[in-house]
Design a protein around this nucleic acid. Structure first.
Length: 551
RNA sequence: GGCCUGUUGGUGAAGUGGUUUAACACACCGCCCUCUCAAGGCGGCACUCACGGGUUCAAAUCCCGUACAGGCUACCA
């Protein structure tokens, strides 16, 4: 009788879900991975929307880092069970974006097909696999078909909301759960559409003790919802695909966004019913922004900087953004980096326990700061090349100048650069033009002179004329400054700041005021890099021209 | 409404019962250096860890309650 029942159920399951293979076939096809103790198998599983959110990049970063440092595997899986989300070339766009940030995969989907023994890695190509495991559940009476229409489900929800009862398909609301095989067969033969739901045996009064790698110990009630596992289009829901895929692909650590934490009860229910060993979970805290005093999720729609492309447009180096991710991933990373400036972030040992919980504040100032410091470590040639790449895409005028005056431009970038404490004036490449425009005659239009203490035009002309007479391009820096002082003193300015501070009334101004006049005359700006270097690059002739432009 | 998570300075955050008179970074302020700015150096910036109880010789760290914030609550991932 019992045996006959099982045979019956098997036929019943076959009737409901046609598959090429049984679950045993797949279970054998994907054996456990032969990896050393402690090696983590992680995965990034985006939808093929083509869009990479900063949060996804962060998750990808963490996946990659932990797989690498444990000697494990990080693979890319595409979750396209929601056909509406699929975008043409979406997968390639995502791979390209990720690769720019040094996030690469050992296995899974690539631009030239799939790599690895645990594929297919695209969920829409795994339909047979999901159905095979759904069938297993049906045979074991752990899943059943449900014929309720979306309208009926909506209605149940309304009633539940009104009665302040738990919302969902469960218990007395789960009418299809009570259908016997004959009823079901009849409905199917009548052409009624159906989905497959888990037959949950959970009791919400029972609490499950659980430890998340990041969040730590927690307690959640057991799931009692008969959640959908196979949709009417034959594809699995996220929850079911997650259980089947991560089991079959032998993922050891499911690293994903914190928003999934709330679904953990369902996943545990699924793994238990499927007889799968539960992987370890690490839920990464969500990236938040301050929106008029309240915190909210970094939003693709509201926040342009949620898109990874944004940083490219700003000219923030990819390396800098990666360093930012490292900084928010482990709070002690920044300190380590400051003490090991010559090392790569990959030399740092990241740990789950140092990861933030309960929301990470997005900090653009921090990104700019990191970017500024990063760019300051580059050689002038490197800065030039990167500025050129940026200009190619976003600024044809700058591109023209950089191309036309290559050596000159490199020299500009080299001012106060290749030394122990380099300048940190360039925060990102969209900022370059703003920092150096006055060095190019084509752009030089001194409309806004930033005169400081001395504004009298005759005096200004007198200062610069006197000084230029003495200026010699072959002077070294010491001689240059001595000469500056000499002329300043001869015109009644204090040659030493100390002298000026002691007796300001004895002088027309200080050497600082004097050189500011020279600086502003030549560049129109009161804030520039080292004046000696600027003068050498400009040359006496162009300085003369700029002096004559003063009105 | 229910469930889950979190709450340390202007900001991000270290901190997992006693070398904490609460690290570090960003921001800000002061001084120094200095041809300007940036950088750099030095110093300042939480008499206290949301609030209220409790456990303990000892709590930011453990427990309970309250408040606030966020996440989730789809045949979406």
């Amino acid at each position: 009788m019992v045996e006959g029942d099982i045979v019956n159920r098997r036929e019943y399951a076959d009737f409901l879900l046609k598959t090429e293979h049984d679950f045993e076939y797949y279970e054998n096809k994907y054996p456990k991975r032969d990896l050393k103790e402690g090696a983590m198998v992680t995965r990034l599983a985006p939808s093929p929307t083509g869009f990479v959110h900063l949060g996804s990049l962060d998750v990808g970063f963490v996946d990659r880092v932990f797989a690498t440092q444990s000697g494990g595997v990080c693979y890319l899986r595409i979750e396209d069970t929601d056909t509406k989300r699929t975008v043409d070339n979406g997968v390639d766009m995502i791979i390209d974006s990720l690769n720019k940030f040094d996030i690469t995969f050992d296995e899974g989907v690539t631009k030239d097909g799939e790599v690895g023994n645990y594929g297919p890695y695209v969920q829409s190509k795994r339909e047979d696999i999901y159905k095979a495991f759904a069938k297993k559940l049906i045979i074991e009476d752990k899943a059943y078909p449900c014929f309720c229409t979306p309208e009926q489900i909506e209605h149940i929800k309304d009633v539940q909301t009104k009665n302040k009862e738990q919302i969902g398909y469960y218990g007395r609301w789960a009418s299809c759960r009570k259908l016997n095989m004959e009823d079901v067969i009849e409905k199917v033969n009548n052409g009624e559409k159906y989905i497959i739901r888990l037959k949950s045996r959970g009791n919400p009064n029972h609490r499950i003790k659980f430890k998340d790698e990041i969040v730590g110990k927690m307690e959640i009630p057991e799931n009692n919802l008969d959640i959908p596992i196979i949709k009417s289009d034959g594809l699995p829901t996220y929850h079911f695909a997650h259980a089947v895929d991560d089991h079959l692909m032998r993922t050891t650590h499911v690293i994903r966004g914190e928003e999934w934490l709330a679904s953990l009860d369902k996943h545990i229910d699924l793994f238990t019913n499927l007889g799968f060993e539960l992987p370890k979970y690490a839920h990464i805290s969500t990236l938040m922004v301050d929106d008029n005093g309240t915190r909210r999720k970094l939003s693709k729609r509201k926040d342009p900087w949620a898109a990874v492309d944004y940083y490219h447009k700003e000219g923030i180096p990819n390396e800098a953004l990666v360093l930012y991710l490292a900084t928010i991933t482990n709070s002690n990373f920044e300190m380590w980096m400051n003490q090991n400036k010559d090392k790569n972030y990959k030399d740092f040992e990241f740990s789950f326990s140092k990861m933030p919980k309960g929301g990470t504040m997005y900090d653009y100032d921090k990104i700019i700061n990191i970017s500024k410091n990063f760019i300051s470590t580059l050689t002038a040639e490197d800065v030039y090349n990167r500025a050129l790449e940026y200009a190619k895409e976003y600024d044809s005028e700058l591109l023209g100048l950089l191309t036309k005056y290559k050596d000159y431009s490199v020299s500009i970038f080299n001012i106060e650069r290749e030394q122990k404490k380099p300048r940190k004036d360039i925060a990102c490449f969209s900022d370059v033009k703003n920092q150096i425009w006055y060095m190019y005659d084509e752009l030089y239009k001194p409309l806004n002179y930033e005169w400081q203490n001395i504004t009298d035009l005759d005096e200004i002309k007198n200062i610069v004329t006197s000084y230029l007479k003495k200026y010699d391009e072959s002077d070294d820096k010491q001689a240059w400054f001595d000469k500056m002082k000499e002329v300043a003193v001869s015109l009644g300015y204090a040659g030493e700041m100390k002298e000026y501070k002691e007796n300001p009334l004895n002088y027309k101004g200080s050497i600082a005021d004097f050189s500011t006049v020279v600086r502003v005359t030549l560049t129109s700006k009161s804030m520039t890099p080292d004046l000696y270097d600027i003068m050498r690059l400009l040359g006496k002739e162009r300085m003369q021209e700029r002096l004559e432009m003063i009105k």
